[in-house]
Amino acid sequence: MRHVGAIAGRELRSLFVSPVAYAVLTLFAVLAGFFFLLSIQGFRETMNYYQQIGQFDVLEQINLNNQVIAPFIQVMWIVFLFLIPGITMGLFASEKTNGTQELLMTSPLTMWELVVGKFVAAGAFVTILIAMMGLFPALLFLDADTPILGWIFSGFDLAEPDPEGLQMLAGLLGLWLLGLTYAAVGTFASSLTRNQLVAFFLALALLLILWLLSVVADLGVAEGAMGTAASLSTVLTWLSTSDHFDKLARGLVDTRDLAYFAFMIGAFLVLTKTSVESVRWR
């Protein structure tokens, strides 16, 4: 695995000399900021509602973790859904159009070094994205008399509640794992074609299917009243990313969900390796 660093390092350098990386980073920062403000807005509206109807006991239970941070993290998956295929689309497709595939495959590298190197590069980019968006909820941990908190709680007779740090970190961990899974799926999509646009839409389609499997499963449960589809829908729900991510985003760390993401990443990397190797079968 000693070539992984060389492969990943080259990939990242190429990413950062191309406009794609900066376009993605800018778009991501703007969207993250927008969705963060939206979450705060939603929080204020909820509080307003309960204050007006005089439900002060509910008001006391509302907290920043569940009403701001978790919704913010949950909504960011949509941003990942579109941006991560943009990052991964070139990983293998561009090697084919550049002809550099021949350089890599006649060098003393193993297939795993190549595949893992590519994935590590995409994973490093995902990590940068998570660090960037983590700055927004981190604002909520600033001292109580900073302007942002003053603004969030202005107009309410309420002690400003402190958010829970670990719960936020669990949510970010969930989004990070989701991002890595998406990166693995995107890497696989890129290995299937030499056209980056095709790789992008293929990744998007795979990720949507992966997300919607649980919806299909829910329909399956309705059918399951007849007695056949229940076990199938259990499998589909398990395979779908949505439930696992949802739990982590709300701050519930369960090793079963962590194992799920590890399994998905591993499975798509195995598929990628098979697909890259298949050039040799033709």
Binding site: R10, R13, S14, V17, S18, N98, G99, T100, Q101, E102, L103, T106
Partner: peptide, 15 residues
């Protein structure tokens, strides 16, 4: 032990 120049030089245009 091999150095190989394919038909199309395997270059990364952005490097």
């Amino acid at each position: 032990a091999i150095g190989y120049l394919p038909e199309n030089p395997p270059l990364y245009p952005e490097m």
